[in-house]
């Protein structure tokens, strides 16, 4: 990987983080914590690793790699990366969560926002949808890869494990899923709410190939994604366990679950923006 690419991706992430805190501040609602933590991952997918086309968005995405955001509450990072990857005008980010917007609180196809292929928000459903899209790709002899992203708290939902059994048992090997392992959920630390135990061992015992990475280290994210892509097509689904810091990039939002679903006030916004360089121009 060229250093210049990493610098460009780092600049992109800084702007996405500015978008995230500005979007949730503007409507005094939304989920900044997980959005900030997953900024490198979604940026890496759309700016570097996925084969996709922002022009003339096509629901079926034939010949493309497809991404499904299962933990729909981190919509701010998804919307920012989509807009800055050309799916819609960056100016539209200012409509986030406002009446008549296409940028609903949780992503939806209902308002026709380019880049979104299924609604998410009620947790635990995106892995099944991703598997369905992966099966359709196989039937269509389409070599595209399906990516799904999940919160770690989200895998407390039973449907995730139904889907995990299915994908391994049926050799769905054109899917790369990822868990945002920040170890926090709304009510607190995962271990205080409902412990997940050894999630690597769990996914391996379900028949998935597991890779681990630091999700806030862009170089590691890219390297791991490339290893994961190389491991597709071998009869085994792939799970990336991605350690992240909820609130990453904004000092006072890190190390706590309190910013899972809370927006910053005016002073906090000012402090956050002072830590994040405006690299591509604010919306």
């Amino acid at each position: 990987m060229h250093d210049t690419n990493l610098i460009e991706l780092s600049d992109f992430c800084s702007q996405v983080r500015r978008d995230i805190v500005r979007m949730v501040h503007a409507v005094a609602s939304g989920h900044p914590g997980g959005s900030l933590g997953c900024t490198e991952y979604i940026t890496a997918l759309y700016q570097s690793e996925m084969n996709h086309s922002a022009d003339n968005f096509d629901m079926d995405g034939k010949g493309e790699d497809l991404f499904f955001l299962s933990n729909g509450h981190i919509s701010p990072v998804f919307y920012s990366v989509l807009a800055r990857s050309g799916y819609f005008e960056v100016a539209e980010l200012s409509t986030f969560r406002k009446l008549n917007t296409r940028l609903q609180g949780h992503p939806t196809t209902h308002e026709g926002l380019p880049g979104v292929r299924i609604a998410s928000g009620s947790l635990g459903q995106g892995l099944s949808a991703g598997i369905g899209a992966a099966l359709a790709k196989k039937l269509n002899n389409d070599s595209g890869i399906i990516y799904t992203l999940h919160g770690d708290g989200e895998i407390q939902e039973g449907q995730i494990w139904e889907a995990a059994l299915y994908a391994a048992g049926n050799k769905v090997d054109n899917i790369i899923s990822c868990i945002d392992y920040n170890h926090k959920q709304i009510d607190g630390d995962i271990d205080d709410v409902l412990p997940l135990g050894d999630i690597k061992a769990k996914w391996e015992s379900f028949g998935w190939q597991v890779m681990e990475m630091d999700g806030n280290n862009m170089e590691q994210v890219i390297t791991t994604l490339r290893q994961a892509k190389a491991a597709t097509g071998k009869g085994v689904p792939i799970m990336l366990i991605m350690k992240t810091e909820m609130g990453n990039g904004v000092d006072f939002m890190m190390g706590t679950h309190k910013w899972h679903g809370s927006p910053p006030n005016d002073d906090q916004l000012k402090s956050a923006l002072s830590q994040l360089e405006e690299t591509l121009g604010d919306y």
């Binding site: 034939k62 949808a129 899209a133 359709a136 039937l139 269509n140 889907a163």
Partner: peptide, 11 residues
């Protein structure tokens, strides 16, 4: 969920 996903790809 799988059924919903299969529609993405024209099934």
């Amino acid at each position: 969920g799988i059924a919903a996903g299969l529609t993405i790809g024209g099934k």
